[in-house]
Design a protein around this nucleic acid. Structure first.
Lengths: 119, 119
DNA sequence: CTGCTGAATTGATGATCATCTAATCAACGA
DNA sequence: TCGTTGATTAGATGATCATCAATTCAGCAG
């Protein structure tokens, strides 16, 4: 059972489920920032499209899936990027985005509920 | 209290990780609503305090842990309630809150990342 | 160089939100 | 009944946000 490591640093050490221990102010502030990034319908779907793309996806393939303007998509992508949820790279004319699973894992763990079989 | 009619939806089909499939507009809207409830530092810490209380906790024990007014805490508790994350009951003079793990599990699954070992 | 295309940035605007004070509600005890 | 205490609701306000049109930036091809 290889435990996948968390190479991304800026994420505060956290990983204790909230059902196990209450968050302090700092952790709550950091967590709220990341949740805020997912707290918009466009952004959440955007995140899911990038996450489910199986690798990376071009902005040009993402934008047509929404009813909002290009600049708005660009703005939302920036929010996701600043939340550490995705990263991107320009290659030629196009820009490609991919998910950063560490952040997702962190949030998932934070919200996880102990299974009944557990102590 | 726990009797009042809340806009709690059937917790849409629950539980395909966003890394497995992109969300449709409806699921994204519903998910964003719940994430929005956790997207505030006060509310996230509030949620963690309730979740980690090991059962239920009195509002009177929660409020003193924050620097904001009582009505503000009450407002945040209402948001958590309407998001289906907590429920409450009045007993005598006091009101007790407890977490609703189903919602947490739902979010946790939504954000879960397949382990490297799994195929 | 110039022109074209995809993406990001700027600036403005209408909407939503977090917070407060004041008022109201709910339960209890004198 | 009336006060008192704990909690919620109502209303107001300043801040933040989502969105767009216009502009700018980055890369490529004549």
């Amino acid at each position: 059972m290889s435990k996948q490591q968390l190479p991304i640093e800026p994420v505060g050490g956290c990983c204790v489920p909230i059902m196990d221990a209450a968050l302090d102010n700092a952790a709550a502030a950091e967590g709220a920032t990341v949740f805020k990034a997912l707290a918009d319908p466009v952004r959440l779907r955007l995140m899911s499209i990038i996450a489910s793309a199986g690798g990376e996806i071009c902005v040009c393939d993402v934008t047509p899936q929404f009813d909002v303007s290009g600049p708005t998509i660009s703005h939302h992508l920036k929010v996701l990027r600043e939340a550490g949820l995705v990263d991107c790279e320009r290659r030629g004319t196009w820009v490609y985005y991919w998910p950063l699973p560490e952040r997702l894992t962190w949030l998932s763990t934070l919200l996880s509920v102990p299974t009944p079989s557990a102590v």
